[in-house]
Design a protein around this nucleic acid. Structure first.
Lengths: 194, 194
DNA sequence: ATTTTACTTGAACGATCGTTCAAGTGTGTG
DNA sequence: CACACACTTGAACGATCGTTCAAGTAAAAT
């Protein structure tokens, strides 16, 4: 039964990712999960409860991917690959270019407290993952040890947000690659002092 | 009568900015504009027609501000000020930190063709404004003349998107200022060659 | 003075929203 | 064999959605 639950959450993820929280109606959800309303409410409490699980699973998945970047021998090279696979994908998966968390932030006012909390905590958690990558890159000498870790983590997360918004509108994949190169260049460059 | 129309569009802008297209119900709109449904439909055709006007007015306003940055004697210094005023504002105007266009892009699938077109054309138009600023900054020698104008314009627009997402979640204004400094530093830095 | 025009009102439309619930199904436990 | 339990179904709930429309008002055009 647990497998069926994860599978259902995965299907819901695709829907929320494409249409957002508000844009995904219970009838869309019923169709996507092939479940009747009673079953959904018995399992997930309500729409927001399902959304919370979706966000948590999304964050956990993202965390794993960022962690394996940090665990690489050359984290910065892995980071470039991570960016590429996240931002350049076939047309039918284009919706994935947008970050589910960032998309949710734009409609945060319309989501209840439970969902809101999951989204914000997810952002913090992924921020930590970015910080881990930077720390590891300093260890491997890919980054100068003067790099301000916390600030660079915020910055990197930002860059990812900007890149995803760019990639959503972009038809030319090579432009995205160039943009990724610029990010990685600026990451190794100088940082403003306090 | 024209004044009343602009005033109404302005009030609708605040609503759409805060709640998004989908999140703003016709009853919210009726209340915000202090107009009855019949009047709204007589004037604006429908919800999407009003949204289109909102987007167009927003873009025109943004264009003016970016143009005056480009017209400055020191466009890069003006750009920094523009970023600051756009991203750092009192709490009751916090909703403005998000870009209305970017927010709309996240729900583009749910907006009709008319509104979608207005949003996408707005993005292109503002992109041109960013390009103008960069060209002007090259003229004033604030930027190297090797700076790739079109690419840097895309990049700058991206940075703005990322910054706005950052600023929305940020409580510490000085962190935002530091982030702006980093953007302006990277703008003057080296660009990846083709 | 009369018609036209632009705009206004507010009740009401059908559709869709998130949610509830009585009733049923199948599996595991005592 | 009976009972509990987790899960299922689908009709139906009241609320809200975007929109329509007949009727009214005020000012401009004829």
């Amino acid at each position: 039964m647990k497998y069926a639950q994860e599978d259902a959450v995965e299907k819901a993820t695709i829907l929320f990712w494409k249409k957002g929280f508000q844009g995904s109606g219970m009838r869309d959800i019923q169709q996507a999960l092939d479940m009747r309303p009673g079953s959904i409410y018995a399992r997930f409490q309500n729409k927001e409860g399902l959304f919370k699980l979706v966000v948590e699973q999304y964050v956990a998945h993202s965390k794993d991917k960022l962690q394996s970047v940090a665990d690489s021998d050359t984290p910065l090279l892995s980071l470039r690959e991570f960016f590429k696979t996240a931002l350049i994908n076939p047309d039918e998966l284009r919706y994935m270019r947008q970050c589910l968390l960032v998309k949710s932030i734009t409609e945060l006012e319309l989501i209840g407290d439970v969902g809101k909390k999951a989204v914000l905590e997810g952002m913090v958690l992924l921020n930590n993952c970015f910080a881990n990558i930077i720390e590891k890159a300093i260890e491997t000498k890919e980054l100068q040890d003067t790099t301000p870790v916390a600030f660079a983590a915020d910055w990197l997360q930002n860059q990812f947000v900007g890149l995803r918004a760019f990639a959503i509108l972009q038809t030319d994949d090579s432009a995205i690659e160039k943009m990724i190169d610029k990010v990685l260049y600026d990451l190794t460059a100088q940082w403003p002092s306090d």
